[in-house]
């Protein structure tokens, strides 16, 4: 019964959805200080290539490869964050977009290392490696009634789910901490924030590095799930796609990018039955959304509305945990 429900197709879509959620969050973090960064596709590429090359050439365990990829992306985030601090709005967007393209061109031209535009194939697949190590411990998926490939995709999905939940939890905590307050103050008014004694440089670079770290991590996971990457995966289309998750879902609260990525990854799959027209509908939905709710679907008002509704219900029925959050 349980085993029949697990279809690798659904798990595959869900895994990509979780990766997109993580990418959406990476943009949300930099946006929460009012900086619009389009470099996240580049950071994603750095994470993906680093992890892929390390695991292929140095036989590093995948986990270490992913961590190295994410860290290198974060370092690049700091390096690009410092000089671009003075820039704002469109100018910052252009510079970061340029950075992303530079990264892609490096991947294309550094042929001895990255195999150029042909891309890298044969990257260790995280699910298959996990299956191997589980079998090494004497565990067989058939013991719980699963086929090998069901187990592979289920383990990827659960791993990603755990990580995504952790990332959401972490950044929600951060949002209500001193760091989060500083981010919000900088977003509202940089000058005022500075005069209140907030170290703008520090917090802006921090946000940039955090965004890069998360994007690099997502890229590394992407590489180990697809087992093949090429520079075209990290072109500006990807940067815009990630940005759309955030703009669509809403950039004020973390649930915005989460919902945006969830919905916009699901849409093309649900619309598969109308094949040629699915991207037309996809585009139409985005246009309508932006016309009706330019701030994104999920904003603070909407969350408050939900909360109030629950509050009143709670008062009526007298149930629930009052010291929520």
């Amino acid at each position: 019964m349980f085993a029949e429900l697990i279809n690798p197709y659904y798990l595959q879509v869900a895994s990509f959805m979780l990766i997109n959620i993580i990418l959406g969050i990476s943009v949300y973090i930099t946006l929460s200080t009012g900086q619009l960064s389009l470099a996240n596709a580049g950071f994603m590429g750095i994470g993906a290539y680093t992890s892929a090359l390390l695991t292929i050439h140095f036989d590093l365990p995948i986990i270490l490869g992913i961590i190295c990829g994410a860290l290198l992306a974060a370092i690049c985030g700091i390096l690009i964050g410092i000089p671009t601090l003075r820039l704002q709005g469109v100018y910052l967007a252009i510079v970061t977009l340029g950075f992303g393209e530079v990264i892609r061109v490096v991947f294309v031209n550094w042929e001895s290392l990255t195999n150029g535009s042909v891309g890298i194939s044969g990257i260790p697949h995280i699910g298959r490696e996990m299956l191997k190590s589980f079998q090494g411990f004497g565990f067989n998926p058939s013991a719980i009634g699963l086929q090998n490939n069901q187990f592979i995709f289920l383990s990827i999905f659960l791993l990603l789910l755990a990580i995504t939940v952790f990332i959401i939890w972490f950044f929600r905590r951060q949002h209500f901490s001193r760091v989060g307050r500083a981010f919000a103050a900088i977003k509202l008014d940089e000058k005022a924030a500075e005069s209140m004694g907030i170290n703008i440089t520090y917090y802006k670079v921090l946000a940039f590095a955090q965004g890069a770290l998360v994007a690099g991590f997502a890229g590394a996971m992407y590489a180990h799930i697809l087992a093949y990457i090429s520079p075209a995966d990290f072109a500006y289309h990807r940067a815009v796609e990630i940005l759309i998750f955030v703009v669509f879902g809403g950039s004020e609260v973390i649930w915005g990018p989460v919902f945006g990525a969830f919905f916009l990854t699901l849409m093309p799959e649900v619309l598969r039955f109308i094949s040629e027209y699915r991207y037309m509908i996809y585009g139409l939905i985005i246009i309508i959304m932006m016309a009706v709710r330019p701030q994104g679907l999920i904003d603070i008002n909407l969350l408050n509305w939900f909360k109030n509704k629950r509050e009143t219900r709670r008062q009526k029925h007298g149930a629930g945990n009052q010291k929520d959050m």
Binding site: Y9, Y10, M17, V270
Partner: peptide, 11 residues
């Protein structure tokens, strides 16, 4: 959300 995924794709 995972439930939604499963049901939505099931059609």
């Amino acid at each position: 959300s995972s439930l939604l995924v499963l049901s939505a794709c099931g059609g």
